[in-house]
Design a protein around this nucleic acid. Structure first.
Length: 528
RNA sequence: GUCCCCAUCGACUAGUGGCCUAGGUCAUGGCCCUUUCAAGGCCAAAACACGGGUUCGAAUCCCGUUGGGGACGCCA
């Protein structure tokens, strides 16, 4: 299916849509192939050809350009596509828009694949690469040339650039003047014998309007006067973006084009290409942009923008998915959605049409929610690699920590952690002696009088067996009573002696997790 | 400059002509709980951009203004 001639496809379009329809979400989920190395060879299996007409399932695609990272805006577009496909048991296709050959490099592609996988946005087909389909585009473009729907343009980029500048300087809309649209055969001969390689331009109607039916925005009308005969094939034979998109969407049987708002202006051009080939247009849905706090386009200068960065900062994939879904989409007053709920309730009509600002605060709140409700063992295992990354212990040491122990830390600390990183940090004083004391805290709480009490407390704990929070509390209260002191008076000094900090979980829970040896040692050492 | 999109609390949004004295969530402030910090509970402050219509009635429909965003490439 990756190479079909226009004619062949035209005759069998309906059939070809059927033959590539997936066998349904549940079953295709198991057979997802995420290795892009083999994907160009993948074909629909013959048994899938037996679908009946009314069982037509939607086919959507996510088509990023390989930039080396998946942007949160792109991730949301991918998510909306994926949710739509899941909801309607359709197919979610991944395709890289790399007609610009420079961009076809594994190091620019692999990180995007990785982020999609991490988010759980697995694709049913692809990834496809435009750079590997150039002969297909050429074939399709030549068909338009033969039918006089396109023509050769010999203008050089320099000439065109000059005209564009001239137009802009006189405050005109820069448009191609159609110079090569009707060359005489003599002129054509002259160019043919010359050095210039022609580009191919699409002939567009002189007047009239074209209406885009958008699932999110309704009807949007464009005047042909706003458009010009745009290039579909560059002089070096590579297709331009708008042309490749349409050829791909047609050959891949895409039924719903769900993409970012910035493409709305390209849509009339693309519709013109559909019309030139005589194909029906898919449903378009232009999702609003994701903006930074200052309402400008989200970019590096605004801090973290890539999915991978949030992963590194200790954000859970389900939290990012939940947050991104709620950014521009809603279902009543509900804030927390499981993946199943997202799929069940998603609809393009419920996508809010205005641009949304990416708010890290709320993302972290959602993240904490999943931290608080997630399975402690699973979360504990996610913390393990962070022990090394945060320099708490070395690789070998990190491997020896029991899952149960990590799970305990998770349970104890997740109510005061917004990220996995924050969850891992207390492991420093819990699991090792390699931590520092906050000097301000030491100064304030470890006074001679308190230190004496802590030393006494240490000895009182020697007999505590088993070393549990409740036993410890009992022992501590008994000892303090004998000294005529209240727990309140030594709680903070004790915490500082044990953890180096003034904040943390319940004192006795902390002790239990620290273990008898560490507690007694640290109390005896207090003030030294 | 031209074209296109958008417009409810600081942020995400609910709202589809009367249920709105505009609801929820994040963030903010206060109180409670408390061995600290959180978490949790309660409360508060906080918005229909503006101007015209249409209508008995408008956040909701229409027009304009303003503001924000996007596009105008042999980039994608």
């Amino acid at each position: 299916m990756s190479v079909s001639s226009p004619g062949r496809l035209r005759r069998s379009r309906r059939l070809s849509r059927l033959t590539i329809a997936p066998s349904g979400w549940a079953s295709s989920a198991q057979s997802r192939k995420n290795s892009y190395k083999n994907s160009e060879r993948s074909r629909a299996s013959p048994r899938q050809a037996h679908r009946s007409m009314n069982e037509l399932k939607p086919r959507v695609r996510f088509a990023p350009s390989p930039t080396g990272e998946l942007h949160v805006g792109g991730a949301r577009t991918a998510l909306f596509n994926w949710l739509f496909a899941c909801k309607h048991q359709g197919a979610f296709i991944l395709r890289f828009e790399d007609t610009d050959i420079e961009r076809n490099r594994p190091e620019l592609i692999e990180p995007i694949l990785e982020s999609l996988r991490w988010l759980g946005l697995l694709w049913d087909e692809g990834p496809y690469f435009q750079s590997r389909r150039t002969s297909l585009y050429r074939e399709w473009a030549e068909k338009l040339l033969k039918e006089s729907k396109a023509y050769k343009c010999y203008c050089t980029p320099e000439e065109l650039e000059e005209k564009r500048k001239a137009a802009l300087s006189t405050k005109q809309k820069p448009k191609y003047d159609g110079r090569c649209r009707s060359l005489t055969s003599q002129e054509e001969q002259r160019f043919l014998s010359g050095e210039r390689q022609p580009a191919l331009r699409l002939k567009i109607p002189e007047s009239g309007t074209i209406t885009v039916e958008d699932a999110i925005r309704g009807k949007v009308e464009f005047d042909f006067a706003e458009l010009d005969d745009f290039i579909i094939l560059r002089s070096d034979g590579r297709p331009t973006y708008n042309f490749a998109v349409v050829v791909d969407d047609v050959t891949m049987g895409i039924t719903h084009v769900i993409r970012a708002d910035e493409h709305l202006n390209n849509t009339p051009k693309q519709i013109l290409i559909y019309q030139a080939f005589g194909y029906p247009v898919p449903v378009f849905a232009h999702v609003p942009m994701v903006l930074a706090k200052d309402r400008s386009k989200l970019s590096k200068r605004h801090g973290a923008t890539a999915v991978a960065e949030f992963h590194d900062r200790g954000v859970l994939p389900e939290a990012l998915v939940n947050y991104l879904a709620r950014l521009g989409w809603s279902h009543g007053d509900q804030e927390i959605f499981s993946t199943e709920e997202l799929i069940a309730n998603f609809s393009l009509e419920a996508v809010h049409p205005s641009a949304a600002i990416f708010d890290e605060e709320k993302l972290f709140w959602v993240n904490q929610h999943y931290l608080k409700t997630g399975d402690p063992k699973r979360l504990g295992e996610l913390v393990r690699p962070l022990l090394v990354k945060l320099n708490i212990m070395n690789e070998a040491e990190a491997q020896t920590v029991l899952t149960e122990r990590l799970a305990q830390i998770v349970v104890l600390f997740r109510e005061r952690a917004k990220t996995l990183v924050e969850l891992a940090e207390p492991a420093r004083y819990l699991l090792t002696d390699n931590f520092s004391y906050e000097s301000e805290a030491v100064q304030k709480f470890l006074t001679p009088e308190k230190i004496a009490l802590l030393h006494g407390l240490a000895e009182a704990f020697v007999a505590v067996e088993p070393f549990t929070a409740s036993n410890l509390e009992q022992a501590a209260r008994a000892y303090l009573e004998s000294q005529g002191k209240a727990l309140k008076e030594i709680a903070q000094p004790c915490r500082v002696a044990l953890t180096g900090k003034t904040v943390g979980t319940g004192l006795f829970e902390t002790m239990e997790l620290l273990g008898k040896e560490r507690v007694i040692n640290r109390l005896r050492r207090a003030g030294l």
